[in-house]
Amino acid sequence: MNSATPALARGCRFRRSANSAGTLLVPEGVVELNSSASAIVELIDGKRTVEEITLELSERTALDLQSMSSDVQTLLQRLAAKCWLVVGDKAALP
C-alpha cells in the first residue's frame, strides 16, 4: 500500500524558507510548514514512493519507522483532502 507515488498538484509549489522550514504555495493561499512537514513535502516529487519517503526520513532523523510512517500518512492525507496532492497510478493513496 506504500507503493503510491505522490506529487504536488498543479499550482502547488514548495518554497524553502531561510530557516529549516518552508512554505507550500497553493492557489490563493500560503501554508506555513514546520521543519518535519517541510522535510516530507520536499521529498514529494511524483517519483519517490510513500515507502521510500518514509525510509529516507526515518534514516535521516533516527525516528522509528512506525512513527515516521504515521506522520507521513497523516500529512499526505491532509494534503490530499485539500486537493494539493495527486497520486501516481501504482496504487491508491494509502
Binding site: T23, G29, V30, V31, E32, L33, N34, S36, A37, D71, T74, L75, R78
Partner: peptide, 15 residues
C-alpha cells in the same frame, strides 16, 4: 507535531 504543521501565515503583507 504534524497536527500543528499546517497553519495560515499571519501579520505580514502576503498578497
Amino acid at each position: 507535531m504534524i497536527v500543528d504543521a499546517i497553519k495560515a501565515v499571519e501579520c505580514r503583507p502576503l498578497s
